[in-house]
Simulated assay, not measured.
Amino acid sequence: MNSTFFTSIAVTGFAVAFLHAALPTHWLPFVLVGRAQKWSTGRTLGVTLLAGLGHVGLTIALGLGLVVAGLALEPRLGGLFHWVVGGLMVAVGLFYIARGRHNHALPEAGRRSYASDRAAIIALVTLLTLSPCEAFLPYYLAGMQHGWQAFLVLSAVLLAATSAGMLIFTSLSLAGFKRLGLQWVERYEETILGVALVLVGFAVAFFKT
């Protein structure tokens, strides 16, 4: 494994996953529902982590599907494969940049109260689980040629970045930091993710690993 090149992929992937987890849709609903249900800080953070695990789990499953499909196509493409992967990442990145600012509306789970804690937990976990971190998926393709070890490392990176981001911002909000200054994240998230994908895509295409 080209450790230097792969490290750059992993570090960029961590930043992308953490930035994605910093979006209010990934922590504010837990704060609002936790207060409405009168949960303790520990319980709110526990539900947040549980939802984060579901969120990461589905993303990893989708990433596994991409890697399996890529392994099936690689023998047919031969030396062109890294160009295809790099081009795909650049295309996805340009799509994010073109789409620009996106309206990340607060999920309905963050606006209503629930008759029981079980209903609240199921709603929060389900909503986040069914919205995987799609921006991270191309990184699985970028690391594919480094083998299954790279897949495991990237999955660990995704888990660490997402869990850290969700728990940190949930904790800060619960502690009374009402204005976390994250409006710029919502406004420029897709542009930042797009630029990161384009840069990694060019690296994959022009620096064969």
Rank of each mutant, 00 (worst) to 15 (best):
L50M: 12
P107L: 00
V92M: 06
L180T: 07
T170S: 10
A123H: 03
K38P: 04
G143R: 14
M1P: 05
L66D: 04
T12I: 14
G46T: 04
H26F: 15
T191S: 07
T25M: 04
F14W: 03
L130D: 05
L64D: 08
A21L: 07
G79T: 05
E186W: 02
A123K: 02
A142H: 08
D117V: 14
G65K: 06
L158W: 02
T44L: 06
L180P: 03
M1R: 01
L64H: 08
L152R: 10
G52A: 06
L94T: 00
V185F: 00
V67T: 06
L50E: 05
V200G: 01
G194K: 01
L73T: 10
G34N: 02
G13D: 10
V16T: 09
T170W: 02
G110I: 12
H20P: 02
A61G: 03
L106P: 09
S131F: 15
E186S: 13
G63C: 07
G181V: 11
H104I: 04
E190A: 12
I60V: 15
S163D: 06
D117Q: 14
A156M: 03
A142V: 10
L88D: 04
L53T: 03
A123E: 08
K38V: 12
I60M: 05
I192K: 00
V198A: 02
V92K: 00
F18H: 05
G63S: 07
G147L: 11
L19M: 15
R99I: 07
W39M: 11
V157E: 03
V204Q: 01
F169H: 12
F81S: 12
K38G: 08
L130N: 04
K178V: 06
L80Y: 13
I60F: 00
R43D: 03
A123M: 02
L88A: 11
N2M: 03
S40E: 05
G57L: 13
I168C: 11
S173A: 14
P24A: 05
R35C: 01
G176I: 11
L88E: 02
L128M: 13
A123C: 03
E190P: 09
V16H: 09
L45F: 06
L199T: 05
A175T: 15
I168G: 04
Q149F: 09
T7I: 09
G63D: 04
W83C: 05
V67K: 00
H26N: 15
F81C: 06
H104D: 12
R101L: 00
G201P: 11
V153Q: 11
V84S: 00
A17S: 14
H20Y: 10
T25V: 14
G86I: 01
V200L: 02
T7H: 01
G13N: 08
N2P: 11
L152Q: 09
L77C: 11
F207Y: 15
A160N: 08
A105K: 08
